[in-house]
Design a protein around this nucleic acid. Sequence first.
RNA 1: GGACAGUUGGGUGAGUUGGCUGAAACCACACCCCUGCUAAGGGUGCGUACUCUAACGGGUACCGAGGGUUCGAAUCCCUCACUGUCCGCCA
Length: 418
Amino acid sequence: MLDLKLIERDFESAKSKLAKKGVNEALLNELKERFAALKDAKRAFEEKRAQQKSLSKEFGAYKAQGKDISELKEQLDALKSEISTLESSVQEIESGLQELAFAIPNFPDDSVPEGLSEDDNLELKKVLEPKEFSFTPKEHWELAELNGWIDFERGVKLAKSRFALLKSDAAKLERALINFFLDFNAKSGFAEVCPPVLNNSSMLLGTGQLPKFGDDLFKIEGEDLYLIPTAEVPLTNIYNNEILQESELPQLLTAYTPCFRKEAGSAGRDTRGIIRQHQFDKVEMVAIAHPDRSDKIFEMMVQNASDILSALGLPHRLVDLCGGDLGFSAARTIDLEVWLPGQNKYREISSVSNMRDFQARRAKIRFKDGKKNSLVHTLNGSALAVGRTLIAIMENYQNEDGTIDIPEVLKPYMNRNI
RNA sequence: GGACAGUUGGGUGAGUUGGCUGAAACCACACCCCUGCUAAGGGUGCGUACUCUAACGGGUACCGAGGGUUCGAAUCCCUCACUGUCCGCCA
């Protein structure tokens, strides 16, 4: 959620910032109007309420002294109905305003490139050269079939479409990658945690998945619980509604969790293979940071994800997302795209974002900033998406006969020397 | 899942015959004084959010959440959530 006072104070700049993200300015105008209306309504209510309180005190005193209270009672009865009208009007305006405010995305940073779609994203740099194959490299699902690594049919049987069953070395690689990522992140200073993968609605509101994107979430029937779409949700919300000491910042956290997404809008895209699944494994980094330090930490997180890919020998590039492609809660995002020789293109494997104080305001995550409490900055990024790393390894490490080599750094994790 | 008990400020914990309690006391924390050495004693301050004021200082909301009774509710009633204990079940 954005700072409504800031929008009120500097309306024009707020408008232009959000225009970069494609937000309709009528929405902002309405927000401003409702905010002003709320203030007026509140003031009226508080005035009457103060009156009621002091008269009620008098009422008590009169009664104790045995004085006549009928006149006072009359006044108070009138006040009472007046107040309840004012109060419900405040509530109505407030909930409408809240709903509106929750639906407005974060401001993009000034450095974010202009643009409406992923075509306008800015490539920052390439790391490692894609290797030349002496044969036509296969796509991962072909390799999966050849090696008996992925059973697509039975995955569907067990659940539904877009679920898969990993077998053999693929299952082992999946586990090896998780361990490798967690160890790598630990060396970079991230503390490992293992959070619940079901979170309640208030946490999903805190990180911005709700109320706008509920359709993308799997919900538990009859409970206020959702399967998390990313470990960003539990990790960021660990300090939901808390006030940290400044000395406790930054909190650098990492976790492996499965992630669950309905992705209702993505039907027809990437239907073959395991690029886009309803359930996938991911190792996530989250930082709870002092506002002055979040840019530095952002760079560190991007570097960390890139270093992991380099350690695996996977060619990749860094892409600065343009305003239109930026996620709802993000002020700045750099995507890491890994080279897939089978598809002959770069595909997203990690996304590192600085949310600034957007999530912190929603989730009420603050720190003692001298005498007062200030909002922290929150950041998150994948390090890395496990399934997509598996795909990248399959495609980049394939041999002409369809066999797949294991990257050196993973061999210790596979209990294998060659 | 069943029974009982509870949910108050950073922590412990009073307050539950409705008004004088947004909230005692203690601890923690901050500053000051005393003292002079790793003991202690004394004083002051110390919840969050919004809002009015040039400022001093006011006002409103919040005692798990939501609703109700009442002139007035942390205190009474209802619903829900959570925590604890015992029982049941279980990796």
